[in-house]
Design a binder for these strands. Structure first.
Lengths: 126, 126
DNA sequence: TCAAACGGTCACATCGATGTGAAGGTCAAG
DNA sequence: CTTGACCTTCACATCGATGTGACCGTTTGA
């Protein structure tokens, strides 16, 4: 598919798709006329990128973790240097922290909403 | 406490503490000499802000959800306009999405790390 | 054949989070 | 009294993600 369709199907501007390619998060073949030609699987890929960006990860990190997320789950051990593993572990832990923080605050917001909705003022004295 | 101590205790630059104040995420009293004077509770507050920023929330949103997170849990119903509630619900849902995305990817990274660590190549055929 | 809708590159603009440094005030210790 | 470590405000710089538009080529359909 061409960039317009990928853009429509992912809700991502063409500009950003080109940016993600420049950052080497996605790859596109080229048609004889120079147009980018995307595979179907790029739809999920872009959605995943969007989700991770939205969750606060920079493209630099996303680029590193994307290979771990590929469907066939083929691990190229040659690529897995100790530094790479260390980076992944660090990032995994940071993500866990983010999840904890987000969950705590999301729950607090939910509680607040529930309290306001039920018009029941929580008892401050206990 | 003054800005230097708050900076040290939160690992946040003075520049950013002033920025958060400018964005009205925190408030500081002023000493007679003009120095900012922070309460103890600002330490947790700043840490919370840092966590939310790191999780991808913009200061604009953080400012809105912080009141829900205050310890005494006193709800000022007058502040809770329908628009405000709608915003909070929207943000709560977005946070849930983020959590889902982060969890999924974090788990995938963890699996990858485990697979590499145990030197067991996952069977592609099943 | 011509216009509309698409594609390409390139470059400059914006926005939020952050760094940096200038120019100056306050205060404690030598 | 001076030095150094604080603090103040202000402004400009940077960085990543994104928008916008110029300028040009390609495809498609009336």
């Amino acid at each position: 598919m061409r960039i317009g369709e990928l853009s429509d199907r992912t809700g991502t501007s063409r500009r950003l798709l080109r940016y993600y390619e420049e950052q080497r998060l996605i790859v596109a073949r080229r048609s004889p006329n120079g147009y980018r030609d995307y595979d179907e699987y790029n739809v999920d890929r872009v959605l995943q990128i969007r989700g991770l960006l939205d969750a606060g990860l920079p493209t630099r990190i996303i680029k590193q973790i994307l290979p771990c997320l590929d469907k066939p789950r083929v691990i190229y051990f040659s690529d897995a240097t100790p530094e790479m593993i260390a980076t992944l572990e660090h990032e995994r832990d940071r993500m866990t922290q983010r999840i904890t923080c987000l969950t705590r605050n999301r729950d607090a917001i939910a509680d607040y909403i529930d309290a306001v909705r039920s018009e029941v003022r929580p008892d401050v004295t206990g």
